[in-house]
């Protein structure tokens, strides 16, 4: 804060107004100029270098009553995901496949722009992006969710709740969905006489034939990680906060999987055009981030065991 005030005090012919105003007022009235002053020194207002993402932490098993859950924090952005498994009858075209239903919610607690009854604009977009990304990447083999071919299969309801919205919502949501899927334990079930599937409790374990022997985990072929960047003039800002996202409009989200394939390159408009050089820079930064996130996820998985 002191550093910024000193910088503001330097004589600058074209921007005398800034030296007379308080920092907070300047930040609110001229947000773009405030940020550009920082970018010229290759730093951002919260002290991060341009290419550095915020501190990320994953906590598996946050919701004890769900079959799989994860709480993810990227800086202040907090996402809580829980997976609940229910039984459904599979469709006729694919009797061996289960189903995953992904939903993203932004409850009113997460941000001042969300009101009860008036959902945020970002919420259905992130929800659809999430479900498209996870289903088109073939990370999960739906055949693993089958119980009795043609009669019963698992429907996994994956609900992502945003508890605190501070930029990079899609990144945090994808990371928490992936972490919850890696933590998911499918319960052991048996079919009772009526043809309904019920969870095997220890007392009745002997009576029925278990459909799946013991609790198991889903195999994830290759894990997805994403990174959101902002393009502004010639700068690439990694992992924006909500303030940065609201000022600079050009966002790029890159989803890579651990085998290096590009799952999604999502750039919805924006005044800055993305040239090949910028695209390759963003992809290179994303690859580094994938390694970081992969090790964070592995560490948190080890802590659970």
């Amino acid at each position: 804060m002191e550093k910024i005030k000193k910088r503001m005090g330097l004589p600058n012919a074209s921007e005398d107004l800034s030296s007379e105003m308080e920092v907070d007022a300047f930040r609110r009235l001229f947000p773009l100029r405030y940020f550009e002053r920082h970018l010229a020194e290759s730093i951002r207002p919260d002290g991060r270098p341009l290419m550095k993402a915020r501190e990320t932490s994953i906590f598996l098993g946050a919701v004890a009553s769900a079959n799989g859950s994860a709480l993810v924090k990227i800086g202040s952005t907090t996402m809580l995901t829980a997976i609940k498994m229910e039984v459904m009858t599979p469709s006729l075209e694919s009797p061996d496949e289960g189903c995953i239903a992904i939903d993203f919610h932004m409850p009113p607690i997460c941000s001042p722009i969300v009101r009860p009854g008036r959902p945020a604009e970002a919420s259905p977009v992130v929800s659809k992006q999430l479900s498209d990304t996870i289903s088109s990447s073939k990370m999960i083999d739906l055949k693993e969710l089958s119980l009795v071919s043609g009669k019963a299969a698992w429907m996994a309801y994956l609900d992502v709740y945003c508890l605190d919205a501070d930029g990079a919502l899609f990144d945090a949501a994808l990371l928490s969905a992936v972490a919850a899927l890696s933590h998911l334990q499918i319960p052991a079930v048996a079919m009772n006489d009526d043809g309904r599937i019920i969870i095997m409790s220890d007392e009745e374990g002997q009576k029925q034939e278990p459909v799946n022997k013991e609790k198991r985990k889903l195999t994830l072929k290759s894990i997805l990680f994403s990174l959101t960047c902002i393009l502004h003039k010639n700068y690439i800002l990694v992992d924006p906060t909500s303030e940065e996202e609201s000022i600079m409009e050009t966002h790029v989200t890159i989803v890579l999987d651990t085998s290096g394939q590009l799952i999604s390159f999502y750039k919805p408009g924006g005044s800055v055009l993305a040239y090949t050089a910028a695209i390759q820079d963003c992809v290179a930064i994303s690859r580094q981030r994938v390694q970081e996130l992969k090790s964070i996820l592995e560490n948190s998985a080890m802590e659970v065991e």
């Binding site: 609940k84 498994m85 229910e86 039984v87 459904m88 009858t89 469709s91 075209e93 694919s94 496949e97 289960g98 189903c99 995953i100 239903a101 992904i102 479900s131 289903s135 739906l142 429907m155 319960p187 079930v189 309904r196 599937i197 019920i198 969870i199």
Partner: peptide, 13 residues
Amino acid sequence: AGKGGTTPATYSP
């Protein structure tokens, strides 16, 4: 969520 239009009815085990 997989193929098929409407979400099928499910029950909890």
